[in-house]
């Protein structure tokens, strides 16, 4: 069974969000990491802001590349340099290896996201 962490928000495109106050940490789910295989590269957004549903980076394994879609809108506060330097962290600890930190524009957007239970159903139906 694929690991799905409780208390986070999820997207159908396999990103997770952890909200702390007005800030959000965005990462890739364990399912995404295992589908991609050994991740060799991560690149964050090249813009100052991200929008919900829009591209906010890319991850690559040896034989695939995948865009990351931001689950929320807001100002980019930080890109996790530890993951840029060691992208394998995404495979090793997908819920620990956050990719970008965003200042939330609106918590209203979170309502459009999936709960852990919804995401689990989503995977089961896929």
């Amino acid at each position: 069974m694929v690991d799905i962490k409780k208390g986070l928000f999820y997207t159908k495109t396999h990103e997770w969000v952890k909200v702390e106050g007005g800030e959000a940490y965005i990462g890739l789910t364990a399912f995404a990491a295992s589908e991609l295989g050994d991740i060799v590269y991560f690149e964050g957004p090249d813009t100052d802001d991200v929008a919900q549903g829009a591209e906010c980076g890319v991850v690559e394994s040896v034989k695939s590349a995948s865009d990351i879609y931001s689950p929320v809108s807001g100002k980019v506060l930080e890109v996790n340099e530890a993951v840029v330097d060691s992208p394998e962290l995404i495979n090793e600890d997908p819920y620990g290896a956050w990719l970008i930190k965003v200042e939330l524009d609106s918590k209203e957007e979170l309502k459009k996201l999936l709960s852990a239970e919804d995401y689990e159903k989503e995977l089961a139906n896929a």
Binding site: V40, Y41, E60, S61, V62, K63, S64, A65
Partner: peptide
């Protein structure tokens, strides 16, 4: 670095 290439991207 094949993920840059046309057969993947």
């Amino acid at each position: 670095l094949q993920a840059r290439e046309q057969h993947i991207r």
